[in-house]
Design a protein around this nucleic acid. Structure first.
Length: 587
RNA sequence: GGAGUGGUAGCUCAAUUUGGUUAGAGCAUCUCACUGUCACUGAGAAGGUUGCGAGUUCGAGCCUCGUCCAUUCCGCCA
């Protein structure tokens, strides 16, 4: 008899079927046994009478079963509304145990958040049976399919680029692969297909995309998968930055509507200049679901009677509509100190006036001025109790701490609506930043970005004043994508690298193929690369990137497979590699 | 490389002010009973080198030092 999937049994009432799957729950009443049978498509209750079908009292959790029987409609009082198949059940006539199972190392019925990650990953093949993991695997496939179809419809061509390639200047450490045929040399796994996609533009591909694996040897973060991750890599020819936004922005709206019940907060996406973004939100990846803006109080603090602020570079604060106890403020201060802040100053606003222990250090004019700035920053003085929290530090740090606190307050006050996606383009990034440690200019983001003003600007302007035609897509506090208009002129390409200390010879030695390609008629082009895994997290409410992979790495290790691991000496000999003696080997 | 948090039964967690008999509970497991459960129920049982090593003490899960592991953050990083 042909196998029926559990999800299809609803259409088979009154018919005899054969189903296969795992025993997820067993309720044994002696001579009557209920088993919830699970396969990829769902769960179905089996009703097994011991005297009709023998040997079934041996069935344990996660046993693999093949069952034949009749699909019956349940009596009204026996319907289980929590199950998709809750109004039917299978009356078993024949039960075959295809395979036994050891008791699973952890329960499979919850979302798994309360189980330690390393044990879930060690037994990932069991964890995948969990409904949440199973659903995410399916959603990932749907996102992949939707993405390919969307880009195809919009005249893009997916091109696969090499995985064994050379080191690129993205900035992270490379994963190196030794070459056997050419001993002593190494491939690098691509940190991104950046150079290939630009060379595809020179080749006339015009609109390229690829769901591309990228390899970076970085330390992990909750939103950064260690080792390898996926980007939706995109590049277009003959487009300005605005034309590019016009082209790709609909993708995010369409994919949100097609795969989720969420709403896009603002479409077309707002475009926020980088400097304004830092001033207003304290970060270049703001959560725009809620309005809470940084307010600059530098002047007021400098003029206050508090000596430590007289020479302060910057004071940035936020206003929170909530009452705080002294202990809560102490805890917040402690949290912020752990982020690196020296301290946190605060005022209460009550009946339109400042209060709190600091107030006496500020004369009435300064107090008025503070309240003025608060209102100008977009806050309303409500009359209810409000609090100002502020940080004094370098400009970058003051913004950073206020931005971190802004995000925490968004969580605390429940302002981050999970059903809203607030996308925004962050534009006008600086091209260069001063590297104080090495006392030289460095690329702020992508070295292949076109500087605003081109070669002329590079030659005449101070590096600090040059903007890049570079942009990020921020969404709900994440960097969802990053891209730029590319520097496609050989001369300005070489000139840009000169600013960060490369001679023309050095640049040609490293990027000869790029410069050479640009010399043979490179079209103007631009692109970006949304993080596929980040998009998964944003669309499906996951806060740890490992959840959106079938087989995630944890701290750059596959604890299930035991990778990476040591290799035999013979294998190293073939490659001409000898390990240093003091390396601690992991077996 | 640095900081925070954590490591006690298969899983999730307890174990009181410097520390005090035999380290507890829920879930899971095993045994028995049960024909309408769906987180089945009831009765019982088993389950531990408290990550590892040293120290302090009459006595350490708890205090000290070292070490290992995990995780989050900083550094790093489109």
């Amino acid at each position: 008899m042909k196998r029926t999937y559990v999800g299809d049994t609803i259409k088979k009432v009154g018919k005899k079927v054969r189903v296969c799957g795992w025993a997820s729950r067993i309720r044994n009443h002696g001579s009557l046994i209920f088993v919830d049978l699970r396969d990829w498509t769902g769960k179905l209750q089996l009703v097994i009478e011991e005297n009709k079908v023998g040997g079934v009292d041996k069935i344990g959790p996660e046993y693999v079963l093949e069952v034949e029987g009749i699909i019956n409609e349940r009596d009204k009082n026996l319907v289980n509304p929590k199950m998709a198949t809750g109004n039917i059940e299978l009356e078993a006539e024949k039960v075959v145990i295809l395979n036994a199972s050891k008791t699973p190392p952890f329960p499979l019925d919850g979302d798994g958040n309360d189980i330690s990650e390393d044990i879930r990953l060690k037994y990932r093949y069991i964890d995948i049976r969990r409904e949440r993991v199973r659903n995410l695997i399916e959603k990932r496939f749907k996102l992949m399919m939707y993405t390919r179809e969307w880009f195809e419809k919009n005249r893009f061509t997916e091109v696969q680029t090499p995985l064994l390639t050379v080191s690129s200047p993205e900035g992270a450490r490379d994963y190196l692969v030794p070459s056997r045929i050419h001993p002593g040399t190494f491939y690098a796994l691509p940190q991104a297909p950046q150079q290939y996609k630009q060379l595809l533009m020179v080749g006339g591909v015009d609109r390229y995309f690829q769901i591309a694996p990228c390899f970076r040897d970085e330390d992990p973060r909750a939103d950064r998968h260690s080792g390898a991750f996926y980007q939706i890599d995109v590049e277009c020819s003959f487009m300005t930055q605005q034309e590019f936004f016009d082209t790709v922005e609909p993708y995010f709206k369409d994919v949100t509507e097609a795969l989720t019940d969420k709403k896009v907060k603002e479409y077309r996406f707002p475009q926020i200049p980088y400097i304004e973004c830092i001033e207003k939100y304290g970060t270049d990846k703001p959560d725009l679901r809620f309005d809470m803006f940084l307010v600059t109080l530098t002047d007021e603090f400098r003029k206050s009677e508090m000596n430590i602020f007289h020479d302060i570079e910057c004071v940035k604060g936020i206003v929170v509509d909530r009452e705080f106890t002294r202990k809560e403020i102490d805890d917040l201060t402690h949290d912020m100190q752990r982020e690196g802040a020296h301290g946190m100053v605060w005022f209460a606003i009550e009946n339109g006036k400042l209060s709190g222990s600091m107030v006496k250090m500020f004369n009435e004019d300064l107090q008025k001025s503070i309240l003025d700035k608060v209102e100008k920053a977009g806050y309303k003085i409500t009359g209810e109790k409000q609090y100002i929290f502020a940080f004094g530090d370098t400009h970058a740090n003051a913004c950073r701490y206020a931005g971190i606190l802004r995000s925490r307050m968004g969580d605390l006050l429940g302002l981050k609506d999970p059903n809203v996606l607030a996308f925004a383009w962050i534009v006008d990034f600086p091209m260069f930043e001063w590297d104080d440690k090495n006392k030289k200019w460095d690329f702020c983001h992508n070295p292949f970005s076109m500087p605003e003003g081109g070669l002329e600007a590079l030659k005449t302007k101070d590096p600090s004043e040059i903007k890049a035609q570079q942009y990020d897509l921020a969404c709900n506090g994440y960097e969802a994508a990053s891209g730029s208009v590319r520097n496609y002129h050989p001369l300005s390409f070489i000139e840009a690298f000169k600013v960060v200390g490369y001679t023309e010879e050095e640049t040609r030695a490293k990027f000869g193929h790029m410069i050479s390609a640009f010399e043979y008629g490179a079209p103007p082009h631009c692109g970006f690369a949304p993080g596929f895994d980040r998009l998964m997290m944003i669309l499906f409410d996951e806060t740890n990137i490992k959840e959106v992979y079938a087989f995630p790495k944890s701290n750059a290790q596959d604890v299930m497979m035991g990778a990476p691991r040591a290799v035999d000496k013979a294998d190293l000999d073939i490659l001409g590699i000898e390990l240093k003696k003091d390396i601690k080997k992991k077996s």
